[in-house]
Amino acid sequence: MRQVWLISGPPGCGKTSWILDRLKKHNSSCGFLRLSGFSENSLEQANSNEIDYVFLKDQIPQLIDLSKSSDQLCTDQDGLLLFIELPQFYLPKESGLAGIDRRVINQLENLKLIPDKYLHFGRDNELPIVDTLNFEKIESLSINLNETVWDPPSLNTFWFELVNGAYGDVYRAKALMNIIDGRFMLFNWIVSRNGSQFLQLNNFAPPKGRPQRISQLIIQGRNLDFVSIKSTVNLCLVNDAVLQFHQASLGNQQLAAT
């Protein structure tokens, strides 16, 4: 029979990483859904639904996208494990399934995904607490980067400046980036950790034209300089002429090597 687990917690606590670890240990069908969560007073949620799924799908190719699933998933399939990720700033008022926000229950009922188990970072001992932070105020910025390609040196400079306070107090930053040579990179940073995570994903796009895959930058923090961030990002992206020049050069190198 299938199992449906709801995993919630504040930004950067490790929800997606914990889910990935469990999925890697699962030997049968699996699915994933990230809910948007709810902003609370001065705490603004980030629109990062696509980043988490794309990353998990890259690592677990057989992963089912529950946001686009059919009614077939609502049947009891042997060994089917479904994870629902929920960003949530506050501790649940009650333990176990009784602590699920009623608004979330309504969403899940519409999707026919009623949890069998509910765990929240900072409450349940099954989950780590090292990166579980309490936020009093948080702003969020989401930048759609589809079909964009980054200049690597400019990207490295921008990311260093970003996480070191050049554009405000950044608590959380993550992104999927297209690199000029066809690589697809995950950038990940949380204020409670030492250093950033840079991971080259398996989804390589041959350097020919602009890549057709999800790319996005998510930033959460306080006193963020939205205008400067967007302006700097635009300066780091290569235009058509530069992209064509580099891709032609890469193509010539590949021909010479054959």
Rank of each mutant, 00 (worst) to 15 (best):
L20Q: 06
Y167S: 02
N125Y: 14
I84R: 01
F226S: 12
D21Y: 12
Q200M: 13
E40V: 14
N47D: 12
G14W: 03
W189N: 05
V104K: 07
E147H: 14
D21N: 15
D58H: 01
F187L: 15
E147K: 14
L43T: 02
D21M: 12
N239H: 06
D151S: 07
L86F: 05
R172F: 12
L162Q: 07
V227D: 14
Q197F: 07
A257V: 09
M185A: 06
L224I: 03
P87R: 06
S69D: 10
Q107Y: 12
Q200G: 13
Q253E: 14
L111K: 08
T16Y: 00
S28G: 14
N27A: 14
V238D: 06
P128F: 09
W18E: 08
F38I: 14
Y171W: 03
Q212P: 01
R210E: 07
P61I: 02
R123I: 10
R213Q: 03
H246C: 15
S8W: 03
V191S: 05
Q88W: 03
L23N: 01
D116F: 04
A248S: 15
P128Y: 09
T157G: 09
R183N: 10
V227C: 11
N125R: 15
D181M: 04
F158P: 00
S228P: 08
D65H: 06
E44V: 15
L243Y: 01
Q254G: 01
F38K: 14
I214T: 04
N27G: 13
N144Q: 11
Q244M: 11
V149K: 00
P11F: 00
N164Y: 02
Q216V: 11
K112M: 13
F226T: 12
R210C: 06
I229G: 00
N146H: 11
D181T: 00
I84F: 05
E50F: 12
L82C: 10
H26R: 06
D76R: 11
R210F: 04
L237N: 01
E126H: 11
S215K: 00
G195N: 01
K25C: 08
L155C: 07
L224Q: 04
L20M: 08
Q220I: 06
K137I: 12
T16A: 02
F121W: 05
V233W: 05
A241I: 13
H120E: 09
L43C: 02
L199Y: 07
Q200E: 15
I138A: 07
G37I: 07
S28Q: 15
W150G: 01
S17T: 15
L86P: 00
D78S: 13
L35P: 00
V238F: 03
G96N: 01
S192C: 07
L23Q: 05
L250T: 08
Y171F: 08
L127M: 03
L86V: 01
D76T: 11
A173S: 06
S69P: 07
N164F: 04
K93W: 11
R222L: 09
I19P: 00
F245K: 13
G209E: 06
T232K: 11
L162Y: 00
S28R: 15
P128I: 09
